[in-house]
Nucleic acid binder design. Sequence first.
DNA 1: GTGAAAGCGCTAACAG
DNA 2: CTGTTAGCGCTTTCAC
Lengths: 346, 346
Amino acid sequence: MLRKVALPYMKKVTIYDLAKSLNISSATVSRSLNNHPSISEKTREKVLAKAKEVGYRTNKFASNLSKQQSNTIGVIVPKLNSYFMSTVLSGIEKVANDNGYNLIISQSLESKNKEILNTKTLYDSGVDALLVSLAYETDTYDHFMRFIEQKIPLLFFDRVFDIPNCPIIVIDNELAAYEATEHLIQQGCKNIVHISGNFKRNVYTERKNGYKKALKEYTGKFNEANCVEHDLNPENVDEIVQFVKSSKKKIDGLFISSDTFAVHCVKALQNAGYKIPEDIKIIGFNNDPITMVINPTLTTIDYPGYKMGVLAGQSIINHLKGNIDIESANSIILKHKIITRESTQL
Amino acid sequence: MLRKVALPYMKKVTIYDLAKSLNISSATVSRSLNNHPSISEKTREKVLAKAKEVGYRTNKFASNLSKQQSNTIGVIVPKLNSYFMSTVLSGIEKVANDNGYNLIISQSLESKNKEILNTKTLYDSGVDALLVSLAYETDTYDHFMRFIEQKIPLLFFDRVFDIPNCPIIVIDNELAAYEATEHLIQQGCKNIVHISGNFKRNVYTERKNGYKKALKEYTGKFNEANCVEHDLNPENVDEIVQFVKSSKKKIDGLFISSDTFAVHCVKALQNAGYKIPEDIKIIGFNNDPITMVINPTLTTIDYPGYKMGVLAGQSIINHLKGNIDIESANSIILKHKIITRESTQL
DNA sequence: GTGAAAGCGCTAACAG
DNA sequence: CTGTTAGCGCTTTCAC
């Protein structure tokens, strides 16, 4: 049987109710509730006590409507369910919550269109600020201009755009990639292949650059064909095995831009008869927990997700609270760290 | 240099502006914008066109204040950054977004107090409905009563309470555990130990029951001491190794309530000289992707996280939209599936 | 230190 | 089909 759901019925208590029962004005109640300086300690306490007694809860909509701000922060991420992203989110949530902000989280699912939609929704929802990590596909930033025009703080993290005056939080991907490649070279690899994501995204191009730089510096040689742009989808891991197999020059090193994908590569290559690290040395990226339980354990780049989230949250909240050093806020570069494990060492 | 951040300056356009520039009333504008049936196609189009032209965006606060509803759904989860939870969230987000709902997500971090706080915040934020998966610690449900009293739809998923009239979405943990244990028995295990989380939580007690049931049915014996209550924190995996080592009767089977922890157990036991599955057979729970890349691949119970999220979202939205079969809505039990892999088979 | 009153932008009952 | 109008609950000048 289908029927309409009953609606709330318990009468909500408003500041007027409080005012009436205390014989004061609603304005005084409001001020007391908000710790306005020009209110006597006595009345404030009276109000607070009464409020507590009757279970008063402030109506955010009325308050937001009046104040024209929402105390919520919007977040757009490519995917919720990746170790890295959920860790970042966890950090953002922590500081947001500690500072009395709500979070509205949405995922672009790597689609530019969805990202644009998310952007609209969050704008309409009246978020006070927006935190975003870009979708694979996104190659323009018109949809963010609305926020910039309205001076709604906008911050990119990890997968970022370089928009003037728009702060970003990243790691030094180029340097990290340089170190990863350097490590492989030092381990004796003579033919290192780099497997990465969509080169539209800063993180992947920068890593490619680092890879290239290390190669040039150490060997003087760099072969564009050794940079594989891939969707990093585990289902397509066979393409990598094929690539390795069919290479004329024996491949003995793999620098892969994602731990999860790297781990699948390890598996697939082992199944194809390759020994890791004897035949091929492999280094991943992210320091996903998975890297420690696989066999062999995976050398990787530690990438501080939680910290990135915390910093993103803090920066934007500082910004919102108005106390920010504008000059220095434009970008934060977090430290990464190479973690050497069995997959690159004999 | 520190200074206040500039505030928005672009004039917002309201329905009054639209009304004026079209020489109609604001009510008509409002109706047009909301596709009210009793509005002529002509005016509606006129309004919509104008709205688009001037970049009108509805003010949610005013609308919510007036309608007394927010179009947002609150979610409380123990942790954002677990494979399972982020997958569930991904599912919830998908349907919420498709149906024009926003999501406010918060994490309890397994703490009852934080959960209570989250509960308050979300209530104050005026969520239309609440989706929750309980913290480890939570053992009372007073903090949810507010929602029930106010008839704000409340739904639990995965880690649930049995509150009258409160729908839940779960899997049949007992049956799943039964099957897991049965599988180990059939593989020849004579002394199976169960390692699980806090037995306060339904998911863990139910699994324990299933384990017990299978043992009783097949062997007639059940030993309480073989049920290990553990925090499932990888850092404490040594405790398990110790437990196994010091057992008088040789342990040859392990049913572990969490894949991530199981994987760490596999590693630690291997390091301690045990062969998996030769010495000890191990089965996990969740079908986390990690199970497929570890060596040996881990037998586990497939646990449909994304689907759970989608269903949770759909149920609650159906509820909100008023078209729900109240009688049948009280619980949804999703199908699980045992996935046998190398860790339990010779 | 406190009160009166004018909004904030939208919705919905009522009237026509 | 459209307009008038009274809120929704809170904030914030402007007086006193």
